[in-house]
């Protein structure tokens, strides 16, 4: 249990998707103009990451890993399908995003209208595929740990995009040199925020 909590906190602050691995930077820069829309996208990312990472974990554990198919038949013990992981992960992500979209539309039309256009875009957000690939690389022990990692990374991404959107809303009133306005200053702010987040390095619960 403590290990799960540790992974959760670590993936929010220390291994933050944006500041430590630059994942999901495209939408992070494109959508972070107002706090409201960025919060919408952030929630959608938390949602999708918390679902896709455990599903991809199970897929990796029972289908793709070397010898993972041995539950089917002892003859499959040395089958290694890990080269298929990219294409299967992205297929799972694309279809889960579609499914999540349909479920939300059915049960919570209010949330659906506020997430609206962002949900389909999430399928090609690198933070989502990155979450699954990191999960595969780090060999988490069980579904609980994988879920904690997915949820934590999502929340970390959410914090990052809301923070930058808030700063960008304020910075409009500052005197930024003309060539730096917009994209340039957003990069430099992200760098400075990354330095701030580095102070969490080495946190352990």
């Amino acid at each position: 249990m403590q290990e799960i909590f540790n992974i959760f906190v670590k993936s929010i602050f220390v291994d933050n998707m944006v500041f430590a691995y630059f994942l999901g930077m495209c939408s992070y820069l494109a959508v972070s103009k107002t706090v409201q829309t960025s919060a919408g996208l952030g929630i959608a990312v938390v949602f999708v990451l918390a679902i896709t990472v455990p599903v991809d974990y199970l897929l990796n554990e029972y289908v793709l890993k070397p010898g993972a198919l041995s539950w089917l038949d002892a003859g499959f013990a040395d089958v290694d399908l890990s080269f298929l992981s990219f294409i299967l992960f992205i297929a799972i992500i694309a279809s889960l995003v579609q499914l999540v979209e349909m479920v939300i539309e059915k049960f919570s039309p209010a949330l659906y209208t506020s997430l609206g256009i962002f949900l389909p875009l999430i399928a090609v957000n690198c933070a989502i595929l990155g979450g699954s690939l990191f999960m595969q690389e780090r060999d988490y022990l069980n579904v609980g740990q994988a879920t904690a990692f997915g949820l934590g990374s999502g929340i970390g991404w959410f914090l990052a995009i809301v923070a930058i959107a808030a700063i960008r809303e304020k910075i409009r009133y500052s005197k930024v040199p003309a060539p730096l306005r917009g994209l340039g200053i957003a990069f430099i702010i992200t760098g400075l925020m990354g330095i701030a987040f580095m102070s969490f390095l080495g946190i352990k619960l």
Binding site: L180, F187, G191, L192, G194
Partner: peptide, 13 residues
């Protein structure tokens, strides 16, 4: 990592 962001910022500048 943060320095990479700052260098891109400077290239854009």
């Amino acid at each position: 990592p943060p320095m990479a962001l700052i260098i891109v910022g400077i290239i854009i500048w």
